[in-house]
Write a protein that binds this DNA or RNA. Structure first.
Lengths: 204, 204
DNA sequence: TTGAAAGTCTACCCGTAGGTAGCACGCTGG
DNA sequence: CCAGCGTGCTACCTACGGGTAGACTTTCAA
């Protein structure tokens, strides 16, 4: 049990480092942030960080990959859920949007700093992204087959929808006019309308 | 006239530097590219670059701003053109997509390296982006007023459409299955369908 | 109370890359 | 053939920041 708690504390420290790193990378960019900056924000020193991460780029990977995994899971779960393609697409896009906005900083950092990842880390993430695209394309194809969707090019449509929603990381302001749920709902509705689904927005 | 030609040569040199910079920043990122790299690619040395640009970040600004200006112009021209909102939206989005894809590298660099611009340069560009959003929102509002478009939230829709098309810089492959014109046309069609316009895609 | 292990800090190294001073080469006109 | 200028190069400076060695402190078990 002493062992157990030590692990929790270790995990907690690791997590705090990641939190501060996300905050600073988001605000000042990856190269615009020094490890000393992160350490200072935590009230510790640089070697402290090195007891939890092997390098600065490992830190970067550690804050990107899990977020991409969450995005994939959101779509995977929705795609596997019961319901019509229309219902599942709405769920998939609303949940995906939620991940994008809840992890806005992580998403932003990933897309900006991709080039700073090691080939290994980038490869792993790109595998996830390919699965994401494949799932989304598959869902669209189902809807086309069932006659619910009308799309000229399924693969382009998948990229367009994915992009429309991913892009929200660039403009969403948590303190703005719209709540996170509003935005997710609206974006999911727009996605449905885009594929020609009936009731892209329920009409009362 | 001797004067005249000297200026042309100066402009040409400046242009070549920018070309190589775009290529390398796109491939390796801004901080991942050294001025020596760019110089080497041109068969010159670093001080040569400094006779044409005051600093590395000035180089960055010089390759971002004109591209953003082009995007704005594309939408501004289409918005001011004659025709129904539907027709003008299609034109605006097709032309905007064309800029995004023709200047794919510049667009990618801008979105990735925003944080490396000086506050001044970034401010100037953000002014342009705000105009872009305003124009697009205005066009959508016209379509809603005329009954051609059905959109829950015009401002979110403008951001969604702009994002969907901007995003193409992440996935378009010039050597891929689709020509640039194909992609522009498909994306413009998807944008129309997204706002509920009739004939998002002409049906024969 | 003591010894060892875990954890953190102080102090440093050193490669890298943005930026510059001053020289050398070649062109043009006398 | 030479003066002078424009142009680009050689050679350098310097700051910064990622990464590390080793000392110090704290904790806990015996």
């Amino acid at each position: 049990m002493a062992e157990h708690m030590r692990d929790e504390i270790l995990a907690y420290k690791r997590d705090r480092i990641l939190q501060e790193a996300v905050k600073l990378f988001y605000k000042n960019g990856f190269t615009g942030t020094t490890l000393d900056d992160i350490a200072a924000e935590l009230g510790v020193t640089k070697p402290f960080i090195y007891t939890h991460f092997r390098s600065k780029v490992e830190l970067l990977a550690a804050l990107c990959q899990p977020t991409i995994e969450l995005s994939l899971e959101a779509v995977a779960n929705a795609a596997a859920a019961p319901g019509t393609p229309t219902e599942r697409l709405r769920l998939a896009m609303a949940d995906f949007a939620k991940v994008v906005l809840q992890r806005q900083a992580n998403i932003a950092i990933f897309f900006r700093e991709e080039k700073n990842l090691t080939p290994d880390a980038l490869g792993a993430i790109n595998t996830l992204r390919k699965q994401f695209d494949r799932l989304l394309s598959g869902l669209l194809r189902e809807g086309v087959a069932s006659g619910e969707f009308a799309i000229p090019d399924v693969d382009v449509a998948a990229l367009a929808i994915g992009g429309m929603i991913s892009w929200a990381y660039t403009w969403h302001r948590p303190e703005g006019r719209l709540t996170l749920e509003d935005v997710c709902g609206t974006l999911a509705g727009l996605a449905l309308q885009m594929v020609g689904a009936a009731a892209g927005r329920p009409r009362g």
